[in-house]
Design a protein around this nucleic acid. Structure first.
Lengths: 121, 121
DNA sequence: TTCAAATCTGCAAACTCTTGCAGATGTGGG
DNA sequence: CCCACATCTGCAAGAGTTTGCAGATTTGAA
């Protein structure tokens, strides 16, 4: 079995794991640091159960790591660079004939590239 | 509908499209230049029909573009950078407890990063 | 110990993707 | 015109994914 086939399977599994809108937003949500499940659920406007369901396979493939503190589980990206790598894929999204779609993409690229917002002090 | 949700769907569709071992190898096969369907099929050791089936959605999403010359259809990457971007994802593949897997990955990274092999002249 | 909060796991229905195959289309040669 | 070659498209069975919900865990507090 040639290496290319073995590795392309691993790579496809990884991409399949990332290929879900909620999981992509979840990863970008962790871009700037760890958060517990409830915070993520609130930020993404999803039921906490669903967030936990998404986190399970991400944890199994070591995309995220967790730390328990009392009854809260804090998650963080195992490879923080993955968030920026995902944003790069925006360059490959086809925006033909989708008016306004391009500007949505530019807007999100900024959201997912900006530093932490300064606190209001 | 917030931009993040619209864009994360587009992005997930893109990743889903890429998340297939044959399609990943196909894209890396086109890394160094255009090829017709039969050549790709021979290189990947797949039936030409299957290659054509994989090319159809890649073409629909503008990952590849084609050019007809007689009865052959030559395909090339719309964004040649996508091949290198895919190779970067190897950094995020989990290799825990898979002896030898790491070296497969390094080997393929080289294969998919090297320049065209020099001709034998 | 008993309760409630936070999270995790298991399951079934609905949905989507993959694959092989049969047949359709387009092109060049004789 | 007729055939063969290269490629494309449509279809159906099987496999895999997503989702909501019910119930299991784990932990801290009363």
């Amino acid at each position: 079995m040639p290496s290319r086939i073995i590795v392309s399977r691993e790579l496809a599994d990884l991409l399949k794991l990332l290929a879900h809108p909620d999981r992509l937003r979840l990863i970008e949500e962790l871009r700037l640091g760890e958060q517990d499940v409830s915070s993520i659920a609130a930020a993404l406007d999803l039921p906490a159960t669903r967030v936990s369901q998404h986190l399970a396979p991400l944890r199994a493939h070591r995309i995220v790591e967790d730390r328990r503190e009392g009854r809260n589980h804090f998650y963080r990206l195992t490879h923080p660079g993955i968030a920026a790598w995902i944003v790069e894929a925006l360059d490959f999204v086809d925006v033909r004939n989708r008016f306004g779609e391009g500007s949505h993409i530019d807007h999100v690229r900024e959201l997912w590239t900006a530093d932490a917002p300064e606190t209001s002090s």
